[in-house]
Computed example of a mutant assay.
Amino acid sequence: MSSSYDPRYAPAGDVGAALMVIDSRLKAIYDGTTETGPEQRLLMDQFIASSGPGGARDLLDGACTLIYMFMTWLRKAYEDHDKDVIEYVVPNLVATMRTMPRSIRPETIPTMAGMVIAAGTGLSPNLWRKQYGDWTKEEMNPLEATAFLLAEHINRLTGDRDYATRLITNALSSAEQD
């Protein structure tokens, strides 16, 4: 029996734009530029505004799709080693988010953990979240951080700083060819 939270019922959103945001954050961290400057934030705001009225929603759905795709890859990687993805990813994610109190409010962490657990068990994170109402402004940074932290986790596991980005780019390319 299929769940109403099955990913096939979820909007994919603008995965390319969401990946661009995450990849630029990864590159900034790897280059030692940890702070998001006002110029970068202005460029991001302009990018979202230029994508029309549905652009922010598409970017948000794209971020959720990234979370789902990253967790699917992580689940398979951990299963290959007879390990549970939830046991190894969620505590690390929560602990990291707790060290970021300026950008991630503590009350948003359970939502992000729940979304990652949903994705890790094969459910759509955006449909899972939708049951609790609309996204709030306070959840946008934690959502971005969640996708970023999962990508960084993948890069660390593989020893390749571009692996997570390539993973999604290759998946998008093969989807276009089909």
Score class of each variant (00 low, 15 high):
Glu139Thr: 06
Trp135Glu: 06
Ala56Pro: 04
Asp45Tyr: 06
Met100Glu: 10
Leu60Ile: 07
Gly55Tyr: 07
Gln131Met: 13
Ser173Trp: 13
Glu144Pro: 02
Pro110Thr: 06
Arg166Ser: 13
Ile67Phe: 04
Asp58Met: 07
Ala77Gly: 05
Arg25Leu: 15
Tyr132Gly: 14
Met69Ala: 12
Asp134Leu: 11
Ala118Met: 05
Gly13Val: 00
Asn126Arg: 05
Gly54Arg: 14
Pro38Glu: 13
Asp84Gly: 07
Asn92Pro: 03
Asn170Glu: 13
Ala12Asn: 09
Lys27Glu: 11
Ala151Ser: 04
Asn155Ala: 06
Leu172Asn: 01
Ile109Asp: 00
Gly37Glu: 12
Asp162Ala: 15
Ala171Asn: 06
Thr136Pro: 04
Leu42Asp: 15
Met112Phe: 05
Arg102Ala: 10
Ile67Tyr: 00
Met44His: 12
Ala113Trp: 04
Arg156Asp: 08
Ser124Trp: 02
Arg105Ile: 08
Glu138Met: 13
Phe70Trp: 00
Ser174Gln: 15
Glu176Val: 06
Thr72Tyr: 08
Glu87Ile: 07
Leu74Phe: 00
Met140Pro: 10
Val94Trp: 02
Met69Glu: 09
Ala113Lys: 05
Lys83His: 15
Val21Glu: 06
Asp178Pro: 06
Pro106Leu: 13
Gly32Ser: 06
Pro53His: 14
Glu39Phe: 11
Thr136Arg: 14
Lys130Trp: 07
Ile22Lys: 00
Leu150His: 00
Thr158Val: 15
Val94Pro: 00
Pro53Trp: 09
Pro101Trp: 06
Pro101Lys: 08
Leu74Ile: 02
Ser51Cys: 10
Gly159Phe: 00
Phe70Ser: 02
Met20Asp: 15
His81Lys: 15
Val21Ile: 15
Arg129Val: 04
Met71Thr: 03
Asn170Ile: 06
Arg8Ser: 09
Trp73Lys: 03
Trp135Met: 08
Ser124Val: 01
